[in-house]
Measured scan of single mutants.
Amino acid sequence: MSGNGNAAATAEENSPKMRVIRVGTRKSQLARIQTDSVVATLKASYPGLQFEIIAMSTTGDKILDTALSKIGEKSLFTKELEHALEKNEVDLVVHSLKDLPTVLPPGFTIGAICKRENPHDAVVFHPKFVGKTLETLPEKSVVGTSSLRRAAQLQRKFPHLEFRSIRGNLNTRLRKLDEQQEFSAIILATAGLQRMGWHNRVGQILHPEECMYAVGQGALGVEVRAKDQDILDLVGVLHDPETLLRCIAERAFLRHLEGGCSVPVAVHTAMKDGQLYLTGGVWSLDGSDSIQETMQATIHVPAQHEDGPEDDPQLVGITARNIPRGPQLAAQNLGISLANLLLSKGAKNILDVARQLNDAH
């Protein structure tokens, strides 16, 4: 009898209710805020589980004197976190989706994509230029951005401005803007500013005609071990179906173009009346040469937790077992079709030249 009692006690200790789920994140304040929001949602869904947040620095956090596009290494903000995932030191990792490459290392998958916040870019102005827009900034004003995508589009749109690289986390960039006289304004992701509670610093939100956004911008991705079915089931509740389908289309477009950090590629997606609209573009580094096109596809946005595919093969690095396969494939095909259209119009040449120029500098 006593033996059975011990077995029952052991089973209770090993039951999922007692389990601590370890969540990996970057150390920056924004990353911690984003991770806290994901953990809060998981806690609400699984009140019996405990969650421990483990923060670590990544290569991208450490190399702050070089433009991201020049470092010449993929997975700048993800490699150390993936290493911890691989060694079973954490069970899942919360990322900004735009930091996750469209091809993940073997053994990993994006197990959830959370509801997207505003994906557009924002302009934050130096205190002396508050009330201005990019259009009304004085001639030769210097605007800071760490992104080739932003610089290429904005140089084309605002030729009277000069664009220079600015690195560091959000706090560091804002301090550089406010305390030094080098920059009249800087460009940042609206979602990051909003998550930090800095709505009052948003001086201008850039519309798609001015600057399309990065693939996955404004959404959070939760990376897990691809074979860890328990954790895949656990994080599945975080999937937002519309965000998922938009981001599958965007990531398929980028992957098929073979774009990345070192080339200016941008997108804009919208879901309306059962249609998914995808606009994508590529630019030369100075913005003088560009190709942009829009395509659409009829896609039914499923309700969360309709029964999805059981075999769960990944699409552009994403596993969404609780979302039907048909809409996911339709979104992926839309991204591939748009990429093929741009490639047929000469996108590869623009991107190759951009890559060579970026590598040469």
Results as ranks from 00 to 15, higher is better:
residue 42 L to S: 01
residue 43 K to H: 09
residue 44 A to K: 13
residue 44 A to R: 13
residue 45 S to F: 06
residue 45 S to W: 10
residue 46 Y to L: 07
residue 46 Y to C: 09
residue 46 Y to N: 14
residue 47 P to E: 00
residue 48 G to H: 04
residue 48 G to Y: 09
residue 48 G to A: 12
residue 48 G to D: 13
residue 51 F to W: 11
residue 51 F to Y: 04
residue 51 F to Q: 06
residue 51 F to D: 07
residue 51 F to N: 05
residue 53 I to S: 08
residue 53 I to T: 07
residue 53 I to Y: 13
residue 53 I to K: 11
residue 54 I to V: 10
residue 54 I to W: 04
residue 55 A to N: 07
residue 56 M to N: 06
residue 57 S to P: 05
residue 57 S to A: 05
residue 57 S to Y: 11
residue 60 G to A: 04
residue 62 K to D: 15
residue 62 K to E: 08
residue 63 I to R: 11
residue 64 L to P: 13
residue 65 D to V: 09
residue 67 A to V: 11
residue 68 L to P: 09
residue 69 S to H: 12
residue 69 S to A: 07
residue 70 K to Q: 07
residue 71 I to D: 07
residue 71 I to W: 07
residue 72 G to V: 10
residue 72 G to C: 05
residue 72 G to F: 14
residue 75 S to K: 15
residue 75 S to Y: 00
residue 75 S to P: 12
residue 75 S to I: 07
residue 76 L to S: 11
residue 76 L to I: 06
residue 77 F to M: 01
residue 78 T to V: 09
residue 80 E to I: 09
residue 81 L to P: 07
residue 81 L to T: 09
residue 82 E to V: 06
residue 84 A to N: 08
residue 85 L to A: 07
residue 85 L to G: 01
residue 85 L to M: 11
residue 86 E to N: 06
residue 86 E to W: 04
residue 88 N to D: 07
residue 88 N to M: 13
residue 89 E to C: 08
residue 90 V to S: 07
residue 90 V to G: 02
residue 90 V to R: 01
residue 91 D to N: 12
residue 92 L to A: 10
residue 94 V to S: 01
residue 95 H to L: 09
residue 95 H to I: 02
residue 95 H to W: 02
residue 96 S to Y: 05
residue 97 L to Y: 00
residue 98 K to C: 06
residue 98 K to R: 02
residue 99 D to P: 05
residue 100 L to Q: 08
residue 101 P to E: 08
residue 101 P to T: 11
residue 102 T to W: 00
residue 102 T to I: 13
residue 103 V to Q: 15
residue 104 L to C: 09
residue 104 L to A: 09
residue 104 L to G: 08
residue 105 P to N: 06
residue 106 P to I: 09
residue 107 G to A: 09
residue 108 F to A: 02
residue 108 F to W: 14
residue 109 T to M: 09
residue 110 I to P: 01
residue 112 A to M: 02
residue 113 I to F: 01
residue 113 I to Y: 02
residue 114 C to G: 07
residue 114 C to L: 10
residue 114 C to I: 13
residue 114 C to D: 10
residue 114 C to S: 12
residue 116 R to T: 04
residue 116 R to C: 07
residue 116 R to V: 02
residue 118 N to L: 06
residue 120 H to N: 12
residue 120 H to E: 14
residue 121 D to W: 02
residue 122 A to R: 02
residue 122 A to Y: 04
residue 125 F to V: 09
residue 125 F to E: 06
residue 126 H to N: 10
residue 127 P to C: 03
residue 128 K to G: 05
residue 128 K to H: 12
residue 129 F to D: 08
residue 129 F to S: 08
residue 130 V to C: 14
residue 131 G to Y: 11
residue 132 K to I: 11
residue 132 K to R: 11
residue 133 T to L: 08
residue 133 T to P: 05
residue 135 E to Y: 09
residue 135 E to W: 11
residue 137 L to C: 06
residue 137 L to N: 04
residue 137 L to P: 02
residue 138 P to A: 13
residue 140 K to M: 10
residue 142 V to T: 10
residue 143 V to P: 03
residue 144 G to E: 05
residue 144 G to A: 11
residue 144 G to S: 06
residue 144 G to V: 06
residue 144 G to M: 12
residue 144 G to D: 04
residue 146 S to L: 04
residue 147 S to T: 05
residue 148 L to K: 14
residue 149 R to N: 01
residue 150 R to S: 03
residue 150 R to E: 02
residue 150 R to W: 03
residue 151 A to P: 02
residue 152 A to V: 13
residue 152 A to I: 13
residue 153 Q to K: 04
residue 154 L to W: 07
residue 155 Q to G: 11
residue 156 R to F: 05
residue 156 R to T: 12
residue 156 R to P: 13
residue 156 R to C: 09
residue 156 R to W: 11
residue 157 K to A: 13
residue 158 F to E: 04
residue 158 F to P: 02
residue 159 P to H: 13
residue 159 P to V: 14
residue 159 P to Y: 05
residue 160 H to D: 12
residue 161 L to R: 02
residue 161 L to E: 01
residue 162 E to F: 15
residue 163 F to Q: 10
residue 165 S to E: 06
residue 167 R to P: 03
residue 167 R to I: 09
residue 167 R to F: 05
residue 167 R to L: 09
residue 167 R to S: 08
residue 170 L to K: 03
residue 171 N to E: 13
residue 171 N to R: 08
residue 172 T to M: 05
residue 173 R to V: 02
residue 173 R to N: 03
residue 175 R to H: 05
residue 177 L to W: 01
residue 178 D to T: 07
residue 179 E to F: 07
residue 179 E to S: 11
residue 180 Q to M: 10
residue 180 Q to L: 11
residue 183 F to V: 12
residue 184 S to I: 09
residue 186 I to L: 08
residue 186 I to Q: 12
residue 191 A to V: 00
residue 191 A to P: 01
residue 192 G to R: 01
residue 193 L to Y: 00
residue 195 R to P: 03
residue 195 R to L: 11
residue 195 R to Y: 10
residue 196 M to E: 05
residue 196 M to W: 05
residue 196 M to K: 05
residue 197 G to T: 03
residue 198 W to S: 10
residue 199 H to F: 15
residue 200 N to R: 04
residue 200 N to I: 12
residue 201 R to G: 09
residue 201 R to E: 00
residue 201 R to V: 10
residue 202 V to M: 12
residue 205 I to G: 12
residue 206 L to W: 05
residue 207 H to D: 05
residue 208 P to D: 04
residue 209 E to G: 08
residue 210 E to Q: 05
residue 210 E to M: 02
residue 213 Y to C: 07
residue 213 Y to N: 10
residue 213 Y to T: 02
residue 213 Y to E: 14
residue 213 Y to A: 01
residue 213 Y to V: 02
residue 213 Y to L: 03
residue 216 G to M: 03
residue 216 G to Y: 06
residue 218 G to N: 00
residue 218 G to M: 00
residue 220 L to M: 13
residue 220 L to I: 00
residue 221 G to S: 08
residue 224 V to P: 05
residue 225 R to G: 02
residue 225 R to N: 04
residue 225 R to K: 04
residue 226 A to T: 09
residue 227 K to V: 02
residue 227 K to D: 15
residue 227 K to L: 15
residue 229 Q to N: 14
residue 229 Q to F: 13
residue 230 D to R: 13
residue 230 D to Y: 07
residue 230 D to W: 13
residue 232 L to Y: 05
residue 233 D to C: 11
residue 233 D to Q: 09
residue 234 L to S: 03
residue 239 H to N: 07
residue 240 D to M: 04
residue 240 D to F: 11
residue 240 D to W: 02
residue 241 P to D: 07
residue 241 P to K: 01
residue 243 T to C: 01
residue 244 L to W: 03
residue 245 L to P: 01
residue 245 L to M: 14
residue 248 I to Y: 01
residue 248 I to C: 00
residue 248 I to K: 00
residue 249 A to G: 02
residue 250 E to Q: 09
residue 250 E to H: 01
residue 251 R to H: 02
residue 252 A to V: 15
residue 252 A to P: 01
residue 253 F to N: 01
residue 253 F to R: 00
residue 253 F to Q: 00
residue 256 H to W: 14
residue 259 G to D: 11
residue 259 G to Y: 05
residue 260 G to W: 05
residue 261 C to V: 01
residue 262 S to A: 15
residue 264 P to W: 03
residue 264 P to E: 05
residue 266 A to E: 05
residue 266 A to P: 02
residue 266 A to Q: 02
residue 267 V to K: 07
residue 267 V to L: 10
residue 267 V to S: 05
residue 268 H to Y: 13
residue 271 M to C: 07
residue 271 M to H: 15
residue 272 K to V: 15
residue 277 Y to M: 12
residue 280 G to E: 00
residue 280 G to Q: 03
residue 280 G to W: 02
residue 282 V to F: 09
residue 282 V to E: 00
residue 283 W to F: 02
residue 283 W to M: 00
residue 285 L to Q: 07
residue 286 D to R: 12
residue 289 D to C: 04
residue 289 D to T: 14
residue 289 D to P: 15
residue 290 S to C: 04
residue 290 S to E: 15
residue 291 I to L: 11
residue 292 Q to H: 14
residue 293 E to G: 14
residue 293 E to V: 07
residue 294 T to H: 15
residue 294 T to D: 00
residue 295 M to P: 02
residue 296 Q to W: 07
residue 296 Q to N: 12
residue 297 A to L: 04
residue 297 A to Q: 04
residue 298 T to P: 05
residue 299 I to G: 01
residue 301 V to A: 12
residue 302 P to C: 12
residue 303 A to P: 02
residue 304 Q to C: 13
residue 306 E to R: 12
residue 306 E to S: 11
residue 306 E to W: 11
residue 307 D to H: 15
residue 309 P to G: 15
residue 309 P to M: 01
residue 310 E to S: 05
residue 311 D to F: 03
residue 312 D to E: 10
residue 314 Q to E: 14
residue 314 Q to C: 13
residue 315 L to Y: 00
residue 316 V to T: 03
residue 316 V to E: 05
residue 318 I to N: 07
residue 319 T to C: 12
residue 319 T to L: 01
residue 321 R to F: 14
residue 321 R to L: 11
residue 322 N to T: 05
residue 323 I to S: 10
residue 324 P to D: 15
residue 325 R to T: 09
residue 325 R to E: 11
residue 326 G to F: 01
residue 326 G to R: 06
residue 326 G to Q: 01
residue 334 L to W: 07
residue 334 L to Y: 05
residue 335 G to V: 05
residue 335 G to T: 04
residue 335 G to I: 00
residue 336 I to D: 00
residue 336 I to Y: 02
residue 338 L to F: 02
residue 340 N to A: 04
residue 340 N to C: 01
residue 340 N to K: 12
residue 341 L to W: 08
residue 342 L to I: 07
residue 343 L to H: 14
residue 344 S to G: 14
residue 344 S to R: 15
residue 344 S to V: 06
residue 346 G to D: 03
residue 346 G to E: 15
residue 347 A to K: 00
residue 347 A to T: 14
residue 347 A to V: 03
residue 347 A to W: 00
residue 348 K to Q: 09
residue 349 N to W: 15
residue 349 N to P: 11
residue 350 I to G: 00
residue 351 L to I: 08
residue 351 L to E: 14
residue 351 L to M: 14
residue 352 D to E: 04
residue 352 D to K: 10
residue 354 A to D: 15
residue 356 Q to F: 04
residue 357 L to W: 00
residue 357 L to V: 10
residue 359 D to M: 02
residue 359 D to N: 08
residue 360 A to T: 10
